[in-house]
């Protein structure tokens, strides 16, 4: 984040750090115990799923605490329109975890917005561990920035004819105070508060550099992908869990029962 400020733990408990080969590459957000929402372009072709790691309950990338959880990816579902109508269109991915996240004050899910949310005059924030300068410096601490939403028409004017915006995209940046998302923030959440509850309205997707002339950050508009997100979260079964070792008494009872059943079948 350019112009971001240090945050405190527990303030953004849904933040996820996506690591590849041991390095932070993208942000993400917790939707529920098994599902993380992030950007499709974080999983560029050719990258092996086994080489990714997910971390929750973390604010300093170099300091794990007792709330930090390391989770493995079970599968990644990329939106079917990814790169179809735009070089970074449909930039949404759902990551299913192999084991469930354990929630605490430091690890909580973010809410999905209603489909008809009026974004006018909402106060929105984004968080991430992305670059903190146009020269590419990165920080280890999670940063936060309040980013006003920029009307689509104005955003398209700022981008001129070089980059077109799809209806499923939204723009946010604090041009006056030079606050913007940057490389490494991709996949992270743009959240707005409504009636004391935070809703995720955007996923950090693309932009042009992250400094002067300041081109606003472009986000995937979560409302456009709601039915797709809900469909997969509701239909894909949770991955099989490695059963904890059965207690000996339970194992004995089980074997006795199976023996009886076996002998009954023989009779």
């Amino acid at each position: 984040l350019l112009g971001g400020e240090l945050t405190r733990d527990r303030k953004w408990p849904w933040q996820v750090s996506v690591h590849y080969s041991g390095f932070h590459v993208c942000g993400g957000s917790i939707l529920n115990a098994y599902w993380v929402l992030t950007a499709a372009h974080c999983f560029a072709r050719g990258k092996k799923l086994q080489t990714f790691d997910m971390y929750v309950g973390i604010t300093n990338l170099e300091v794990a605490n007792r709330h930090t959880q390391w989770l493995e990816i079970n599968q990644v579902i990329i939106h079917p329109t990814f790169e179809m109508f735009h070089p970074v269109g449909g930039d949404v991915a759902l990551v299913q975890l192999k084991s469930p996240i354990v929630f605490s004050d430091f690890v909580l899910p973010i809410c999905l917005p209603p489909s008809n949310l009026n974004l006018h005059n909402m106060s929105c924030w984004t968080t991430g561990w992305g670059m903190i300068s146009p020269q590419g410096e990165t920080g280890k601490e999670l940063l936060e920035a309040q980013l006003p939403l920029i009307p689509k028409f104005q955003c398209q004017l700022l981008y001129g004819l070089t980059s077109y915006l799809l209806p499923e995209m939204l723009c946010a940046a604090d041009i006056k105070n030079m606050k913007n998302v940057c490389e490494g923030d991709s996949g992270g959440p743009l959240v707005c508060k409504l009636n004391e509850t935070w809703l995720q309205i955007g996923i950090v997707s693309w932009g042009r550099g992250c400094a002067q002339p300041l081109y606003p950050g472009v986000f995937a508009n979560v409302s456009y992908f709601l039915s797709w997100i809900r469909y997969y979260m509701e239909t894909v079964p949770n991955p099989p869990q490695i059963l904890p070792s059965l207690s000996s008494s339970l194992r004995n009872n089980l074997s006795t029962l199976l023996t009886i059943m076996g002998s009954l079948l023989v009779l």
């Binding site: 527990r10 959880q69 354990v102 904890p244």
Partner: peptide, 27 residues
């Protein structure tokens, strides 16, 4: 970072935890 062990499944999350409501509200 401790790798999650199956024993943790015992306290695996309740699915009804409230979303979007951090304990620590920004001041």
């Amino acid at each position: 970072v401790s790798r999650r062990h199956p024993k943790d499944q015992a306290n695996s999350p309740s699915s009804d935890v409230a979303c979007g409501q951090p304990v620590l509200q920004g001041k």
